[in-house]
Design a binder for these strands. Structure first.
Length: 325
DNA sequence: AAGACGAAAGTGGTTGA
DNA sequence: TCAACAACTTTCGTCTT
């Protein structure tokens, strides 16, 4: 794990810093911005510019959230299928691929949208009475909790909040659990910002816990709240897989090229993007003599070896790829 | 012995009647 | 709501390195 000492903060994982005293922090240790969103009750500060999260070292408040995170983080970093977002990224390549940053996020909130979010967040500080406001505050808390567990940047939470508010206004939340809808809103926000993450990861960490439920709410948001998202792109998954397998940048370029050609041929329609990305990385690896076993790639992409084999066969056949060992 | 391959059966989601 | 369907997973036997 990459640990960089930047007194008085300690960088732990990507986009996260641990500090002794949260009150001493007034600039973001990652980007230097002074636009910090404070959440003292959580012992956490988030940078509204780059999404970096700054936490206090001591664990003494917010029991459910705190008890959950370190354990979960520990578990995920040692055993079981890897969760891309929780793992550290090799320092050699981390500089250029910060998906939490503004470039990878694709787009920023407009000033008007940002004002809206700040206004919503201010409700935390004043006493409120309307059902709508209480609902939104609860949603906000769950969004923050979930986003923290998944390591999602501030911009995604804010976007999700706006999506959620639209859903409430359209009456879509009635009869559904807040946690399912907010999880769906976060997922939609991720998709809009092209952050490659699967619904399963949300299901694992959401209070709702039910993948089906979240998926249903997600479809509802797309259809009835007219949230526009792009189709999941295999290319977005390539980077995640590459990072886990420690492959050379040339391999990534080739994998992306393969995916590009596959898309042009219309091979990707209806297929799991992670499976395609996995096969492309596998093939590109072989072409560069950077062999990784199907098992390794499958693990990194969270698909099975069989799926990789199927995509592999299709790609090699349809794109006439030669030069394989 | 480990990896690759492929067949067969099972699972969960989508679609259309 | 139900059945058909495509994609994916699991499991397992066999071949290859």
């Amino acid at each position: 794990m990459e640990v960089i000492d930047v007194m008085p903060t300690i960088r732990t994982t990507k986009g996260e810093y641990i500090v002794d005293d949260i009150n001493e922090i007034d600039v973001c240790p990652a980007c230097g911005s002074t636009k910090l969103v404070r959440s003292p009750e959580r012992g956490e500060i988030a940078c509204s510019q780059c999404g970096t999260v700054i936490r206090v070292k001591t664990i003494d408040s917010g029991p459910e959230w705190r008890a959950f995170t370190p354990e979960e983080r520990d578990r995920r970093s040692r055993v079981g299928p890897p969760s891309y977002l929780s793992i550290s990224i090799p320092s050699s390549i981390s500089a250029g691929i910060d998906w939490r940053g503004k470039d990878a996020a694709g787009k920023r909130l407009s000033p008007k949208q940002r004002m809206e979010v700040l206004r919503l967040r201010r409700w935390h500080k004043v006493s409120v009475s309307s059902a709508l406001e209480r609902n939104l505050i609860q949603a906000m808390d769950e969004a923050d909790r979930l986003a923290s567990n998944l390591g999602l940047p501030q911009t995604v939470r804010d976007e999700a909040l706006l999506i959620y508010k639209r859903a409430v206004e359209k009456g879509l939340v009635k009869g559904r659990s807040i946690s399912s809808v907010i999880a769906a809103a976060l997922y939609a926000a991720c998709r809009r910002m092209r952050i490659p993450i699967t619904l399963d990861e949300f299901a694992k960490h959401s209070e709702a816990g039910d993948r089906k439920d979240i998926a249903r709410c997600y479809r509802l948001l797309i259809r009835d709240a007219s949230v526009r998202v792009s189709v999941a792109d295999p290319a977005d998954f390539v980077e995640r897989i590459m990072n886990l397998l420690n492959l050379k940048p040339e391999v990534q370029a080739d994998a992306l090229e393969i995916i590009k050609k596959a898309k042009e041929k219309g091979l990707t329609a209806g297929k799991d993007p992670a499976g395609f990305a996995a096969a492309a990385v596998y093939i590109a690896g072989l072409l560069h003599g950077e062999r990784r076993t199907q098992k390794e790639v499958a693990r990194a992409a969270q698909v099975t070896e069989v799926t990789i084999r199927n995509r592999y066969k299709e790609l090699v056949w349809e794109l006439n790829i030669s030069g394989l060992p």
